[in-house]
Nucleic acid binder design. Structure first.
Length: 277
DNA sequence: CGCTTTTGACCCGCGC
DNA sequence: GCGCGGGTCAAAAGCG
């Protein structure tokens, strides 16, 4: 299984800060610091040498980045292929397992007998910074807040949101902090969106969601319906327990995010700007 | 100026 | 009928 779910070091070990010691083995001391820009006169020949060296270094970084992106893309497609294989696998057990976790990941919750009558209710747990008082759960959709209430069973207020992407979309969302663990936001969704997530219309949400995000064992209590927990605080831990399905989903998300980043021209442009800067 | 957020008022269902 | 609590409305304020 390990080959099917490879562990990837997603840390960007880039040489983007050439003035720091780790990355400057090739750089001679006299070229460091502000010497080149200060009043100290540097021969034109040496200055050209510095520029050439800098160019070579940037080229090497560019090459390294290209290789990393290629690897990331390959791993993404391999994972996607593996995922499709699993989905089409005849083994009932595997199929059931896969579907169960896919279902869990996408929406969760609400018993089957209820879903046919009432609007679909799902619950998502999102771990956030406890000091962050905003009741905002970024899920890709546009929401309009229409109310806030303090409820009896919970000291933190409950916020009420409506989908504002399309008037015809009647999905509602309630967000409230977990009474036991204030670092966990509980978002309750009612109904189903009849449109795609408003990615293009919600650039802020899309751009702000680049913090380490992955699924984690839910903090759900007792007999509550199955939930999805998005941990926005803790960095991803790469433990070697790939047999755990939740960990698979976590890794899948990390890979997908990396692939998404690698295909995002804005991200690559920002990366290039950071390097050149 | 238009959209979103805030917040007090109001509505409604439920239990007694 | 009354009170309570959750959910919604809508005017005012805030913001870009």
């Amino acid at each position: 299984m390990e080959s099917a779910w490879p562990l990837v070091d997603t840390s960007l070990d880039l040489n983007i800060n050439p003035r720091q010691s780790r990355c400057n083995k090739a750089m001679k001391p006299e070229f460091e610091g502000e010497a080149a820009h200060s009043g100290v006169k540097v021969p034109v020949k040496d200055e050209a040498g510095v520029l050439v060296e800098e160019l070579n270094r940037v080229s090497a970084e560019n090459k390294k980045l290209t290789e990393m992106l290629t690897v990331l893309c390959e791993q993404y497609y391999a994972l996607q292929h593996r995922f499709n294989e699993l989905m089409s696998n005849n083994s009932k057990k595997r199929k059931a397992e896969c579907e169960a976790y896919t279902k869990n990941l996408i929406e969760s919750s609400s018993s089957d007998e209820e879903s046919s009558k009432k609007p679909k209710i799902s619950r998502v747990h999102v771990r956030t910074n406890p000091s962050d008082t905003s009741l905002i759960v970024r899920d890709g959709y546009q929401w309009r807040k229409y109310g806030q209430k303090v409820t009896r069973d919970n000291p933190s207020p409950r916020a009420y949101f409506r989908c504002s992407f399309a008037p015809s979309c009647l999905v509602k969302k309630k967000v409230q902090r977990n009474a036991e663990d204030p670092s966990i936001l509980v978002a309750t969704y009612e109904g189903e969106h009849n449109h795609d997530p408003a990615r293009n219309n919600a650039p802020a949400e899309r751009s702000l969601n680049l913090s380490p995000t992955h699924t984690a064992p839910s903090a759900q209590t007792k007999a509550s319906p199955p939930t999805v927990t998005l941990d926005l605080m803790q960095p991803a831990r790469m433990e070697d327990d790939a047999e755990e399905p939740a960990r698979r989903i976590q890794q899948l998300l990390v890979h997908q995010m990396a692939a998404f980043l690698s295909r995002d021209p804005k991200f690559t442009a920002a990366l290039a700007a950071a390097i050149s800067g």
